[in-house]
């Protein structure tokens, strides 16, 4: 793995000024603006009144969780195919952010469900499959913290990550395949135009924040990995454990 370490170090040394934090700053600015826009511009829904506005956080969290798991799936597949450490680290970073967003989706959904449906939780297919998705990625993260050998950890993670990501289409289609309490996906046809734009802008804001979190986490993981590799090389050359 010597070559890849050298390349990683070189990449860090030659990297231009890092624009990542600005994605995060932009994400926060857009999110605040989008929330204000949503609260001010959208009229209360005829049935649920102002509770409709929970849509502007619940749905962006759900959409972006699915996107994050798509990144997990692609990076995991490429790791199994090419065996590049960077792909494993990217998958792990996206899995962390995806798990966080899924947890948020569940929590916000419960907060929305209580006043509208009348219950915090019920074991219906959409909720259950989402909970399974969440716990699979919690398990993925626990698995990673228990395996020390990099290659073994990466291979097992890639398989679990792919299995977990396979849940995403099941979660998405659950409201069409089975009888649920959760309603079908809304579309611009079933959503008044006063709701569609705030929803879209909020989704973009959360997407920016997600991109920031994944890239930042990935950078950190690469740095950690590089430091570990350098320490190993130093140890092999008999320079002791000066980490």
């Amino acid at each position: 793995m010597g070559v890849s370490v050298d390349r990683l170090v070189a990449a860090r040394v030659t990297a231009p000024r890092d624009p990542t934090p600005w994605i995060g700053v932009l994400g926060i600015v857009v999110l605040v603006a989008a929330q204000v826009y949503g609260v001010i511009s959208s009229p209360p829904d005829r049935d649920m009144g102002h509770l409709q506005k929970i849509m502007y956080v619940h749905v962006p969290a759900a959409w972006n969780a699915m996107l994050a798991f798509l990144v997990v799936a692609l990076a995991s597949l490429r790791y199994l195919w090419k065996g590049r450490p960077a792909d494993d680290l990217l998958a792990a970073s996206a899995a962390e952010v995806g798990a966080l967003l899924t947890g948020l989706t569940l929590a916000l959904g419960m907060i929305w469900g209580k006043p509208t449906w009348g219950v915090w939780w019920t074991w219906e297919p959409r909720l259950t499959s989402t909970a399974v998705l969440f716990f699979m990625f919690v398990a993925y993260l626990i698995l990673r913290s228990f395996v020390d050998d990099f290659e073994r950890r990466a291979q097992w993670s890639a398989v679990v990550g792919l299995l977990g990501a396979l849940n995403v289409p099941i979660v998405y289609m659950s409201v069409r395949w089975w009888r649920t309490l959760h309603q079908l996906q809304s579309s611009p046809m079933t959503l008044d135009s006063s709701y569609t734009w705030p929803l879209r802008v909020n989704a973009v804001a959360v997407m920016l924040l997600m991109a920031f979190a994944i890239v930042h986490r990935y950078r950190t993981a690469v740095t950690e990995y590089t430091a570990d590799e350098l320490a190993d090389h130093a140890a092999l050359r008999g320079e002791g454990n000066r980490v």
């Binding site: 209360p44 829904d45 509208t116 449906w117 019920t122 309603q183 079908l184």
Partner: peptide, 11 residues
């Protein structure tokens, strides 16, 4: 429990 539709409309 309420099972509402996927429609969101202003009054």
């Amino acid at each position: 429990m309420i099972k509402h539709s996927e429609e969101y409309r202003a009054p």
